[in-house]
Design a binder for these strands. Sequence first.
DNA 1: TTGTAAGCGTTATCAA
DNA 2: TTGATAACGCTTACAA
Lengths: 338, 338
Amino acid sequence: MTSITITDVAERAGVSIKTVSRVLNSEPNVREDTRAKVLGAVKVLNYRPNYAARALAGSRSYLIGLYYDNPSPSYVGEVQYGAVKACRETGHHLLVEQIDGEKDTWRTQVESLLRQVKVDGVVLSPPVCDRSPVLDVLEEQKIPFVRIAPAGDWDRGPYVYMDDKRAARDMTAYLLSLGHRRIGFVKGHPEHAATQARLAGFTQALTEAGVPLDPAYVQGGAFTFRSGFGAAERLLNLPLPPTAIFASNDEMAVGVMAVANRMQLNVPRDVSVVGFDDAPIAQSVWPQLTTVRQPVVEMAEAAAAMLIQPRASPPGTRSRMLEFALIVRGSAAPPPLA
Amino acid sequence: MTSITITDVAERAGVSIKTVSRVLNSEPNVREDTRAKVLGAVKVLNYRPNYAARALAGSRSYLIGLYYDNPSPSYVGEVQYGAVKACRETGHHLLVEQIDGEKDTWRTQVESLLRQVKVDGVVLSPPVCDRSPVLDVLEEQKIPFVRIAPAGDWDRGPYVYMDDKRAARDMTAYLLSLGHRRIGFVKGHPEHAATQARLAGFTQALTEAGVPLDPAYVQGGAFTFRSGFGAAERLLNLPLPPTAIFASNDEMAVGVMAVANRMQLNVPRDVSVVGFDDAPIAQSVWPQLTTVRQPVVEMAEAAAAMLIQPRASPPGTRSRMLEFALIVRGSAAPPPLA
DNA sequence: TTGTAAGCGTTATCAA
DNA sequence: TTGATAACGCTTACAA
C-alpha cells in the first residue's frame, strides 16, 4: 500500500520530478505537450500530492485555519460549513481550533498553534475576530487572515460583513409600510457590536419616515429568549402598547411572541413581531417569524475564498460586504384597525 | 523568524536529536536525568514540534479527521466542539471534511482525502457514520475510526452512542408517574435509526405499566416542526384526546405546542408536551420544554479520545455508551382532574 | 524549457 | 543508553 509519489508520476511521464512539480503548481515555462503528458500521468496514476511534504518543503501548506470560540453551536456549524465549502473547491483543508480561556493566554495559544502546524491563512470567526492579541500574532508572523463580522478595529486586515444597520432600517421600513406607527424595539446585548448598529437602523427608518420615537418603546435586551420575554412584558403593558415589535434577534422575538400568546394577543392580528438573524428557531414557531437572514455561510465561504485567492479581490477593496435578505413570513401584518 | 527546531533543543540540552525525539515521544531507554535535561531545554526554548515534519517522517500525524455531512448546523457545531476539546488536550488537531454528493462518489472522496493528508484517525458523525463505502475505505487503509451514534452495522468498528430506547422509556415512565394514562406519541422520520428506538421505548414503558396502547395515539412525523404540527392536530382533535404528548424530537414538540396554543389549550395545564434532544429551541419556548438531553458534545469528545488513546478502552469493549439526562422543565404536569 | 541537488524538521535504522 | 545518518515527498535554488 505504498502511495504514489511525485517520482512515480515523473517516471510515467518521462520527465523529472521538478517538471511535475511545475505543472502541479501551475508555474510558467512548461511546454504545452509536456504539461499534457504530466497531467495524463497524474490522471492515470490517480496521484494526489502529499500535503505534509508540501508544507515541509515549501511555503504553502494548503491548510486553512478556522479559529472560533463558542458562540451558538448553530453559528459555528454554519461558519464551518461555508469555510469547508470554499476549501474543498481548491484542494485546501480546514483545521479548526478553539481559542478560549483568559485574555492573557490568547497570544500564547495562537503562537503555539502556528508553530505546530503551518497554515496558509486563518478565518477568524466572532468573537475571536475581535481579540487583538490574536490579530497581533497573526500580523507579526505575516499570516494572512480574514475576519468575519468584526465589531471594531476595521483597519486591522480584511473582513467580510453585512450591513446590520441597513438591514434594521429596511425591516423597520417594512413595518412602517404595513401601516405601523407605534413600533417597539428590543435591543441586543450591550457588549455586542450588532446591538448599536441595529438600533441605529431602527431609529434612522423612523426619522426618515417622520415618525417620532417614543423612548418607552425602546427596551433593553440581551439576545436571549428570557430578555425578549421581559422586554415584551414591559412593552405590551404600556398604556398605549406598540402595534408591532422589532426584536433585534430571533431568540428575543420568540420571547416576545410567547408573551403575546400568554396575553391572549394573536400574532400577527393583534400585534406584529419580527426578528433578526433567521436562526433555525424562526421557522419553528407559529406563525413563522418574519426576519432578516444573515448570510453566515456565505460570509465564511467568502472569507476562506479570500484567503485562498488573494488576487481575486482587487487591492484597496480588501473587504467584502454581503447582502442580507428580508425574509417575510407570517408574523407581521398590518396593525389592527383601531 | 526562523522557528526553533529539534536541533536547537538538542544543542541546548547537549544531546543528539534522536534523544530529544525519544523524550518527546516517551520512548523507553532514556536516563532520567537526560530526560530532565531535554525537557528543560524544551521548556526554555518553548519548543513545539513541527507537525508536517512529523507526519512526513513518521507514522503518526497528530491530526484527527472529522467527517460530517450536513445534519443541523447546531449538531455539527456541538460535534465539532467536543472533538476539538479532546484533540487539544493531547496536542492533536482537528481536520474537518464534508463527505457529500452521490453515494457512488463517497469512496473516491475519502480515498482522495486520505491520500492528501495523513490522519491518525477519523471521527464519523451521522449520517456519514452509516455510509458503508466510507467505512470500507477506512478499513482497507487500516485507519482507525470511531462512529458517533450509528444507525446500524454495529460490528463495523467502535462507536459511541446513547440508549435512545431507554431514554424514551424513561420519559414515558415520567409521564405515567405524573398520572397520565392517555399519552400520544409523535414518531420521527421513518429513515432515521432513532425513530424505531424511541417508539420502542415508548411502547415498552406502556407495557411495563400495564397501560394499553391505542394505535390512534401514535402518529407519524418527520422530525420537523410542520410534521409535529400536523400530528398534534390529529391527536388533539380525537374524540378522547391524549392528556400528554411525547414528540420524539424537540422540533416536533414545539409544533405540538403551537397547535395547543391555537386551540386555546394551556400547556401544561390542559395538555403536557415533552420532546427529545434538548435542542436549543427547547429553552426558547414558553413554557420551556421537558426533554431528553443527548450528550452530543460528550459523544464527540469520547470518540476523538478513543482515537487518540486507543489503549484507554480495554479490548473487547471497544464502544462506549454515554448517559442521557431527563431534563425536567415546565411543559409537563399532572393531567387535568377530569 | 528542463533537470540536478540541496534542503525542510522530524522519525526510523542500525551501529556504538 | 545513546548517536550518526538515512529516509519521508515535496519545493527551491541553481544549472544546463
